[in-house]
Amino acid sequence: MKKLLILLFCAGIAGTVSAQKEVSAKTIFDMIDQGKEINYDGVTITGTLDLTELSNKKRIKKNKDYEEFKSIVEVPLTFKNCVFKDDFIAYKNSENQKRGNSGFSISFGGDNETHTTDFAKSVVFENCTFEGLTEFKYSDFADKASFGKTKFEKEANFKYANFKRESNFANCTFDEYANFKYSNFKFDADFYTVAFRKYADFKYANFNERVTFKGSSFNENADFKYAEFKDSGNFDNTRFRSGVDMKYSNGKKYIN
Rank of each mutant, 00 (worst) to 15 (best):
F84Y: 13
S107D: 02
K85A: 10
D87A: 15
T78P: 00
N63F: 13
N81F: 06
V73E: 05
K70H: 02
G109S: 14
T78A: 10
K92M: 12
Y66F: 11
T52K: 00
V83Y: 15
Y91M: 04
S107M: 10
K64I: 04
K98W: 02
Q97E: 09
K62W: 09
N112Q: 12
A90Q: 06
F79T: 01
D65P: 04
S107A: 12
V75P: 04
S102C: 14
F88Q: 10
K64R: 15
F88C: 13
S55R: 13
Y66R: 09
P76Q: 11
L51E: 00
E95G: 09
E74K: 13
F84W: 15
F104I: 05
F104C: 01
N81W: 06
F104D: 12
I106L: 08
K92Q: 11
Q97P: 05
K70A: 03
N112M: 07
F88Y: 03
G100R: 03
V83E: 09
K92E: 01
D111W: 12
K57V: 09
F79L: 04
K61R: 11
N93T: 03
E74F: 08
N112G: 02
S55E: 14
T52N: 06
N101T: 14
F79I: 06
G110L: 09
R59A: 02
F88L: 15
R99T: 01
Y91D: 03
S105R: 12
G109F: 05
R99G: 00
L51W: 00
I106Y: 09
E53T: 10
S71I: 10
K62P: 01
K92C: 04
K98P: 02
N63S: 08
E53M: 02
D50K: 09
N63L: 10
